[in-house]
Amino acid sequence: MAWKAIDRITPADDDGDAPVLSEAVREKIRSFFPRYPEKRAALLPALHIVQDAVGYVSHRAMRDIAELLDIPPAQVLDTVTFYSHFWTRPRGRKVVVACRSLSCHLTGAEAVIEAVKRHLGIGEHETTPDGAFSFVTEECLGACEQGPCLLINERLHGRVRPEDVPRLLNDPDNDRLDVPRSDLYDGIRGPTGEMEGRA
């Protein structure tokens, strides 16, 4: 008798030999160290920065972070997977998050979620083939008075009606914020605005 078991002994496909974090990204992560009495506390900031710089938190990125923070890679995996904000596989350039909690549900979130899926042609946790969009639903986004709401990257859209969805998703500026940004948690951007995550 034998069983089929998932192989966890060999490294993951996205865990190559070469580090993925550039020196600039590492430096940015290190800049968080003085904020905390312990280096490990910079883990959440590091994950935000890496997700922004690389697009998602790959296994190789987790190892790079573990090395930087002096913790075992398993501890990074443990923390990464606890939080729903982090992606452990590639995602689209724009992540559409629909609130599914009660306030939004009562104001019509279900229809909006269906409209988004229909427009993008993908289901939850999926990414469009062109890599433009990923879609997820999440519990309460804390914008209940604006329900039903959608978050497109950083930008929150409130009182979304199903019929607004195509226009909203087609708008190239749908993820642009009106307020001045702070780049504290951003990945490192090059002169062209392209991410310089990869080493």
């Binding site: 192989d7 966890r8 002994i9 060999t10 490294p11 993951a12 865990d15 296994h59 987790m62 190892r63 075992p72 890679p73 398993a74 501890q75 990074v76 995996l77 443990d78 997977t81 606890f82």
Partner: peptide, 23 residues
């Protein structure tokens, strides 16, 4: 003191795991 094992995910989906490649 080798810390190979960890938990992944949370709630009723939580599992024990290792970092792949660090058995």
């Amino acid at each position: 003191g080798t810390s190979e094992l960890c938990l992944v995910d949370r709630g009723h989906r939580a599992e024990i795991d290792v970092f792949p490649g660090r058995p």
